[in-house]
Amino acid sequence: MTAENRISLSRHENKLTKSVKMYLRDIKGVIGLFILLVFIVMAIFAPVIAPYSPDTMTDDVLQSPSLNHLFGTDHLGRDLFSRVIFGTRISLSVGFVAAGLSAIIGVFIGSFSGYYGGATDDIISKVIDTFLMIPAFFLILIIVSIFGSNIMYIMLVIGLTTWPRNARLMRAQALSIKEKTFITVARSTGESNMRILFGHVIPNGIFPVIANSALQMGGAILTEASLSFIGLGDPNLTSWGKLIYQGRPYMTYAPWTIVIPGIFVVLAVLAFSFIGDGLQFTFNPKNKGEK
């Protein structure tokens, strides 16, 4: 049994290495991954990296970038570099949690809908189409303005409004996978529908959702930044968008207060779209082996 497990593990690794190699062929994907890794390190080790406490106010108000303050200071004399580093935590968490939630909901609804079919599927597809059509940002804006702008709400609402794209991808996958013989085999050997759904349909169809989730992480970061910029961000937390919001009144004298946090938003969104496209490239069956 253990020997056997070992063999199977090494096989898994082989398959994984292949995919990783495939992914690494795409230069954009590599760059995206690199940026993301840097951000993750920044988020985890923020207290170590940041030279100052992000909230300590000093008299050095609106200092331009210097060796002392890499990114300058804001209107309350707080070190912008430290604030950006700590902001990474908020922005990245919003990306991961919101897109993760969206992926989970999308995978469940999409796979149920596609696998079971019938009238439920008709209705669900219509709902998916409608949600996809209407820009989620407005719905998020309305809901957040009514329910309050706690970061938990924001992540929840982004997740709850962006799942339809994942659901659509997953549904299409489920529709094609359920016609495969191995699903019939599973039914004929007595596997329950739940087991088939979670054991075969989802594992075989989830890759487009994963690739899309990377894109949605960038999208969630943008959405949170926009909300913060309007003034609907979590009042107690400082994300990149919040930094731009805070810097805006002073931007003519201290452009760095808005330009630098913005560059971080752009880099994060860019990284996620590189990664998403890279993943799509990796799992596109057309690219197998060629190039």
Partner: peptide, 19 residues
Amino acid sequence: DSFDPKMLIYKSIELPMKI
């Protein structure tokens, strides 16, 4: 088409026995 492409062969054989 009779085997789940994401499953090792022995898993595909073992699953029906288990169930």
